[in-house]
Write a protein that binds this DNA or RNA. Sequence first.
DNA 1: TGCTCGTTTGCGTCATGGTGCAAATATAGA
DNA 2: TCTATATTTGCACCATGACGCAAACGAGCA
Lengths: 115, 115
Amino acid sequence: MTQTSKYACCSGLRDEAASQLFKALCDPTRMAILVRLTDCCGERTVSSVAECCPIDMSVVSRHLTTLRNAGVVRAVKRGKEVFYSVRTDALAKSLRAIADELEACCPSTKEDSSE
Amino acid sequence: MTQTSKYACCSGLRDEAASQLFKALCDPTRMAILVRLTDCCGERTVSSVAECCPIDMSVVSRHLTTLRNAGVVRAVKRGKEVFYSVRTDALAKSLRAIADELEACCPSTKEDSSE
DNA sequence: TGCTCGTTTGCGTCATGGTGCAAATATAGA
DNA sequence: TCTATATTTGCACCATGACGCAAACGAGCA
């Protein structure tokens, strides 16, 4: 999450990293998978994660790959199983970096609850 | 962005609000529109926003509606123009709330830069 | 009222991506 | 080596959503 603003302020939002992050989190199934992973606060195998939703395990595997590429989860292979876990700190850090960049750019638009 | 954890921890991530937020931000064009809006740090009409990208203005209008429904931008009609602006505080707050919930649930998974 | 400008909406088209099934791959154990 | 289990990958299908164009809507102005 680079903070460089080459063209416009908040241009960091257009980074590949931010883009991938939002794409990873915008699918309901992937979000369910993520919640399932946070639920145990540790590691889970693909099979274990797959219990979260009524979809084929191969699909879960693909979603986990997507989340992994986005830096949301990490994968550790042990024996014939692969253990996935949430990269909590990295994820929280990325989200806060985006929030920071937004505020640094557009100081404040406090509102009266207008839409 | 409710912080209630009815079922699992981080279940707040499954809220409609969070879901809409990520869906709104996962499209490259909408992100470009958002950056364009942050660039001026104020208001922009649909036509002005549309200069950000080579797509039809009607499409930009639709994207702005999506962003508005997700609580990312606000719209104010004045005369025959509609002025859109970023809801910086609300957006930053939402992102931080998600980061907070993640950390509150899964304390820490500090890492050695493993993937 | 009639005209013009800015924006939104209806609709058809097309690309993307989520999904399931079956086959392939990898690893542990007999 | 052969088998069983866990995961990933190839492939085809289908739903969703982004897009452009044209028409509709709304507000200001002559």
